[in-house]
């Protein structure tokens, strides 16, 4: 598969603090990549840089062949990158359906006058988008929740809805920020199946940040370990498991158990 995300020498400073430096990664279509590291290692910062929430101090990002430097977040989303958030950020008081419909914003093209005057293009595109949303929700077993306010859903369903919403923007790369946070082992196991399904059905590459090592080791084909803003190791789950640098980053000593 071709490289769809190419990040080279990415770095950012916050004030005097070097939060991330010399971050390189190439992601191929349909790959599942894990991003792990102790708290404060700069994992979410990577996501914020990839989605242009923060702008890098140095280095560059090329997404599906386009340079994202200086672009706004919504433009980068249009290039084909979507994300979920560590602390769920749904449109809480809007319905589940509307949450998905908002992410379909750019798949519709009717103008403001066409909307206000309810011209045929409005009806046609709205109906298509609504149908598509229903199908997408059905894939995640959420079609019967379509009319409930997103904030009223149980925790696990909210996490799933964030994934649905991200997928609705039709991404090539999907960033999942701690998707299993707060889930019990059976929910996590189900989430692993979901992530696999998403990759297979939608053909997206997935980068995920996660502290749950059973999930990371279970589904990631490649893992990158960050510590103090630097990549300290990368490789297959087996390579990472036995890497002494990783063990040290997690446990802070030379000898010890593996991080999982």
């Amino acid at each position: 598969m071709a490289v769809i995300l190419d990040v080279s020498k990415l770095g950012i400073n916050f004030g005097g603090l070097q939060a991330l430096d010399d971050f390189n990664i190439q992601v191929h279509g349909g790959e599942i990549v894990g991003l792990i590291g102790p708290n404060g290692a700069g994992k979410t910062t990577v996501f914020n840089l990839l989605t242009n929430v923060y702008h890098p101090s140095r280095g560059g990002i090329s997404l599906t062949g386009r340079n994202t430097l200086g672009k706004r977040t919504h433009e980068v989303t249009g290039y084909g990158i979507a994300r979920t958030f560590q602390n769920i950020r749904l449109f809480k008081s809007l319905s589940v359906m509307d949450n998905v419909m908002i992410a379909l914003h750019n798949s519709m093209s009717y103008s403001l006058p066409e909307a206000c005057l309810r011209l045929p293009k409005y009806w046609r595109q709205e109906a298509e988008a609504r149908k598509f949303s229903r199908e997408l929700l059905a894939v995640f077993d959420m079609e019967d929740m379509a009319d409930s306010p997103a904030g009223s859903l149980p925790y696990g369903a909210q996490r799933r809805l964030e994934i649905v919403r991200a997928l609705a923007t039709n991404p090539k790369v999907l960033l999942l920020d701690e998707p299993a946070a707060g889930m019990n082992p059976s929910e996590t196991a189900e989430l692993m199946r979901t992530i696999h399904d998403v990759r297979d059905k939608f053909g997206v590459a997935i980068i995920l940040i996660e502290h749950d090592m059973s999930l990371v080791m279970g589904i990631c084909e490649r893992i990158i370990v960050l510590n103090y803003g630097l990549i300290i190791a990368q490789g297959t789950p087996d390579e990472i498991r036995d890497n002494p640098l990783v063990v040290e980053a997690y446990l802070g000593q030379q000898r010890g158990d593996s991080p999982c």
């Binding site: 929430v53 919504h74 449109f91 809007l94 419909m101 908002i102 914003h105």
Partner: peptide, 28 residues
């Protein structure tokens, strides 16, 4: 009618969560 269109939903999404709206492709 504006509020029941994609444009209206974009406006609502800003009220709900501006960062998530931007990440969902809304030019906030």
């Amino acid at each position: 009618t504006l509020m029941r269109s994609r444009h209206g939903r974009a406006i609502l999404s800003i009220r709900e969560d501006e960062i998530a709206a931007e990440a969902s492709g809304i030019p906030t």
